[in-house]
Write a protein that binds this DNA or RNA. Structure first.
Length: 158
DNA sequence: GCCAACGTTGGC
DNA sequence: GCCAACGTTGGC
């Protein structure tokens, strides 16, 4: 069986990692993604059991804040069907849903946010999607990159 | 708040 | 299907 790794962006002012850890069952539906490439990844590639970095964007110190695990896939994004939601999409419906997403569960917060600036400094991470396609809000992390970050950055903090 | 990068829309 | 105009993301 193959294991996939991902990076999910969220603005901590709206929903930070601590929101996830204090949510019921430490879980949340990853709603509000309205970019087709990101949607396609969520719909077609992300599997239950995959791990993901929870990344804080558009904030004072952008970076990786925690780790989460995928608990459900193939969910219709509820916000897309809710006329009250800022993410409402009138072109989406229950019968023909346009925005498919996942549920994730908090695994652990990192002892510190690993700043984007720091990731940039590692030669081994120069090919990370995060450092090259900065606007994609759901993106793959390679096994090599994941292992490097775990071993060289996260473990080094302990 | 600025602005570069880049995604989306819509006229043709 | 092209591409100009426009909107959004996100680091700084």
């Amino acid at each position: 069986m193959t294991m996939n790794y991902w990076l999910l962006k969220s603005e901590p002012d709206q929903f930070g990692y601590h929101h996830l850890t204090s949510a019921p069952k430490k879980r949340t539906i990853w709603d509000g993604v309205r970019n087709y490439q990101a949607r396609n990844i969520l719909r077609d590639q992300v599997k239950v059991g995959d791990l993901a970095y929870f990344y804080h964007s558009s904030c004072k110190i952008p970076g990786i804040a925690g780790i989460c695990r995928v608990t459900k896939v193939g969910l219709i994004d509820p916000s897309s069907l809710d006329p009250e939601s800022p993410y409402y999409d009138p072109k989406s419906s229950l019968d023909n849903p346009r925005w498919i997403t996942i549920e994730v569960e908090a695994i652990r917060a990192l002892s510190r946010v690993i700043p984007l600036k720091e990731l940039h400094q590692h030669e081994a991470l120069q090919n990370m999607v995060l450092l090259n396609r900065s606007r994609l809000s759901v993106q793959p992390v390679s096994q090599t990159e994941w292992d490097y970050i775990e071993e060289q950055i996260i473990a080094a903090d302990r």
